[in-house]
Structure formats: C-alpha cells, structure tokens
Design a protein around this nucleic acid. Structure first.
Length: 463
RNA sequence: UCCCCUGUAGCUCAGCGGUAGAGCAGCCGGCUGUUAACCGGCGGGUCGAAGGUUCGAAUCCUUCCGGGGGAGCCA
C-alpha cells in the first residue's frame, strides 16, 4: 500500500487507489448516520482531505469519535469520488490509527480563526494553520524561483560570510559577535581589548553580502548571494526584522539600465511562478487576507515597470497639490508617504526610481557625470513600498576613495574592496531584495513577523 | 527611539466607580453525508503587574511590563 500526500489524495486521479495517509485532524464532524467525517491535513497543500470513517470500524467509539483537533492519525482506505459538494475526492477508511492525541482542553488552536497576534505567541504551532502553512509553501516557492531564475541565466550562487568585520554601509546598528566574557572583558587603556577577542578584532553579523559578492562578480561575472542578514536597529514596525533573508545579485560589465532590467525580470519571474504554482494558496490569501491580491500580482507581470528619475519624482510630488507631513525638496530623502503616493496613487503600478542625490546614498554607488547624483535605483510596489534597492557600483578608485572620506569612512578598512577597482576594474551593478517583503507583497499579509517562521525583533527571540 | 491606541474566561470581545458578562472553544446529551455542521445543558476569570485615590476600583490616577497602529531607519 502506498503512502500518499493529502495533496495527491485530493486529485481526481487518485480515485480507486487504496492508500495510506498521515496527517493532523483539522476537524471532525459526526454524522447522524452513525459515522464521522475527518478533515485531514498534512501540510502538503492548503486543502484538507475528507476521510469518511464508518461506524463499523473496530475502534470507532473509542478512538474515531474522540478524535480531537490537532491529533495526528494514520488512515488506510480507498480514495473515492465524493458524492457531496465541497471536495472532489474522499477517503473511505478501513483503518484509523491514532498516532498522537491532542488534549482539547489545552491545545491552543481551534477550528475558528485566530488573530495573528495570538498565533505569534504560539509560533511553533502556527504552521498548522491554513494561513501559516500557505506562507511556508509560498516562501519555499519563492526561494526555489530565486535559484532557478539565476541558474537559468548563468549566475553562480555565492555563499558570502555571516560573520564579518566590515560594515557595509559605514553606519547602521550591528550585532557584535564575540567570545569575550562580558562580566570580565580584557582591558587596555581602560577600554575593552578586542585584540584578545576570537577574531583579534571586533566582528559582527553581516548586514549585507554585497561587498563580498562584488569580489565574485569581478571574477565570475554573474553571481548572487541569498542568506540571512542582521540589523540591530531598534525599529518596531510591521516591515522590519532583526534577522531577515536577502537576495543580492551582482553583475560585472553591467550598468544601471541592465540592473533595472534584471530587477524587473526577476520580480516578474517570482510573481509569475507563484501565480502558476501556488494557485490554491494564493486564492486562500485573496479570499481571507487581501481582496485585491490578484489584481496587484497581475499588475506586476502585465506591463513594463515605469522608470522615473528622482528629479522627476520630486517634481511630481511638489506639483501633487498635497500636504505632506515631510516637505518635498530636491536633496532630501523620499519618505514612506511619498513613495506610497507615487506607486499607489499617482502611477498605480510598480515604478523604478533612479539617479538619487549623492548625499543620500552610500559611498559605493557610482557618481553620475553631473556630479550631483548617483546611479541608484529603488523599485517601489503598491502595498509594500520599497522592495528592491540597488545601484551601479563606483568602479573608479579615486572617486570611490573620495566618497569614503566624504562619508567619514577610513579607506584602510576597505583596502580589499578597493583592490577590485585597483586591478582590472569593470563597471558592475547589483541590488538587494528582501525575501520577507516579497512575501508581504505576494500574500497581502500586513506584518513581516508573520511571513518568517520564527521572527526576531527587539525584545523577542523566542523559540 | 518618538507619538497614539490597547491589555477582562482557552480564543474574540462587552462592561468604564456599587462587587464579573456574551459568542466561540471545552465537557455532557441529541440529531438518517457532514462542509467554520446544527440544537439543548454544564463547568470556567486573584479583570497584565505594583502602588495610589475612594466607604467601595475591572472601571479614576502614577509607574512598569506585554500587544497593536503610525513615524524614523531601511530590505
């Protein structure tokens, strides 16, 4: 007898097969006719399979009629076409084994809906719900799409380090990595002596693999990194995590226009794959979470992204006739309200903003000929705002070093990075995409803590 | 980190100076294939914590802790 998944058992092709199924009870309904319906889910898909358990089963009264939500069972039986509405198939059980009971008095999940806030307090059990099972499957699909997209285009997957001594952006809050005993640190001249630390100097969790992946772009041509990144910012918002996953491609011999083309194709591929392969889960999110989900996703694949320069965007915003909480002026950064207005109200579609003032962007972005702007780009999408940030990199050694000093960085700390310009420098470009922000966009979920298995945020590192 | 809102039964909430309530879940019973099944009954809470005001505090005040929304920063 084959053991098959719930997903397989729900397909019409399974009718006639005698199979074994294992999963968790979502609900049990006892019929007036002296038998029971068990909704079984094993996480393989959004839907449940309906198991019909006859009153004649030897353990019907003792076990079947006492099955609780959350109990794990193994079922053997024949898959048949369902005579009733609601499902294509059902399994007529010849055997129902209870694997693990779930005490109904204490099991926190009910048949009814729960708030996301409550489910966050039981993060180890929430993947058993429709919503979080669907998010996990979508997260998997997006990850696979990332690798397939780049592999098909000849990119190499580079494993950049998690522990690093360089601080990519020159600012930002970092998590320190140390083996020094915090209660009795070694001292030198009154300060902690990091020469005695594990790495012989201060080390941190990475905030980005960009600098290291650039080294591989400048040798293998087309590369990407995809891994966890860490920010110790004390930001409590529905869009920030202390630990999140980021995808960062980097391409040699590419300029900002190539970079925009890549970013657009990449987003279209991810959304297109999700639409094609996660239809059942997306329908669930469209029904329960975000009514406008399919319109929003289809808008990604349907048309080219608009490309608007920062200067044009500032012009649009100043002429919009709106009162902004933060004033709009050339040279100041665009705020959330401005980005959301552009993509959600003015253009009503994804838009790529580019050529930002040099004072607003990090040292590694290539300075344009006007001297005032850099070849930066941000991809804005309705519902989320900024989802991708990237740039063409500064490939001229002298300009790079000038920009480092401009931003108060010590070029000595980046000598290996400067070497990429010192020896055989090439134009190159890349971007970063936050996996969780992509999932917010794909599912319509409102809080980033609900699209990662175990969220890490200020004051919260449970599980 | 700042501003606003909020914390009452396992869950979702009502009560907002006079001594604790509903729906759902749970338990028991009923019901000729059910679809968040339905119908009847029962049990369940030191009202986030600590102080304070008051004859009396879930209710008013203070502080702290948790949660949510917005902002900053960003992905």
């Amino acid at each position: 007898m084959d053991t098959i998944s719930v997903a397989a058992a729900r397909r019409a092709e399974a009718v006639g097969r005698t199979v074994r199924l294992c999963g968790w009870v979502r609900t049990r309904r006892d019929s007036k006719g002296g038998f029971s319906f068990i909704e079984l889910n094993d996480g393989s898909c959004q839907g449940n399979v309906q198991v019909v358990a006859a009153g004649e089963l030897p353990n019907y009264e003792d076990v079947v009629k006492k099955l609780k939500v959350g109990a794990s069972v193994a079922v053997e039986g024949e898959v048949k076409a369902s005579p009733a509405k609601g499902q294509a198939t059902e399994v007529h059980a010849t055997k129902v084994d209870l694997l693990g009971d779930a005490d109904a008095e204490t099991y926190p999940l009910q048949k009814k809906g729960h708030t996301y806030e409550f489910l966050r307090t039981i993060a180890h059990l929430r993947p058993r719900t429709n919503t979080f099972g669907g998010i996990a499957r979508l997260r998997h699909q997006v990850s696979m799409s990332v690798h397939q997209f780049f592999d098909e285009r000849g990119f190499f997957y580079i494993h950049t380090p998690i522990i690093t001594a360089s601080d990519c952006e020159g600012g930002g809050e970092l998590f320190r990595v140390t083996t020094i005993d915090p209660d009795k640190p070694p001292k030198k001249d009154g300060r902690t002596d990091y020469t005695q630390d594990f790495f012989g100097k201060p080390a941190y969790l990475t905030v980005s693999g960009q600098l290291q992946v650039e080294a591989f772009a400048c040798s293998l041509g087309k590369v990407y990194t995809f891994g966890p990144t860490f920010r110790a910012e004390n930001s409590n918002t529905p869009r920030h995590l202390a630990e999140f996953w980021m995808i960062e491609p980097e391409v040699a011999f590419a300029d900002l226009s190539d970079n925009m083309n890549l970013a657009e194709a990449f987003l279209k591929r991810i959304v297109g794959d999700a639409l094609a392969k996660c239809d059942e889960d997306l329908k669930f999110f469209a029904e329960r979470v975000d009514k406008g989900l399919f319109d929003r996703l289809n808008a990604i694949t349907a048309q080219p992204f608009l490309r608007v320069s920062y200067t044009e965007a500032v012009d649009i915003l100043t002429k919009a006739g709106k009162t902004w909480e933060f004033p709009v002026a050339w040279g100041s950064d665009l705020q959330s309200e401005h980005e959301r207005f552009l993509t959600e109200q003015h253009f009503k579609q994804p838009v790529i903003l580019y050529d930002y003032p040099r004072t607003l962007k990090p040292f590694y972005m290539r300075v344009n000929d006007d001297g005032k702007t850099v070849r930066a780009m941000d991809v804005l999408v309705p519902g989320v705002g900024e989802i991708i940030g990237g740039s063409q990199r500064e490939d001229r050694l002298d300009v790079l070093e000038t920009r480092m000093k401009e931003q108060g960085l010590h070029p000595e700390g980046y000598s290996w990075y400067a070497d990429l310009r010192r020896y055989g420098t090439v134009p190159h470009a890349g971007f970063g995409l936050g996996l969780e922000r992509t999932l917010l966009f794909l599912t319509g979920m409102a809080n980033i803590r609900d699209v990662i298995p175990f969220p890490r945020t200020p004051g919260n590192a449970e599980y």
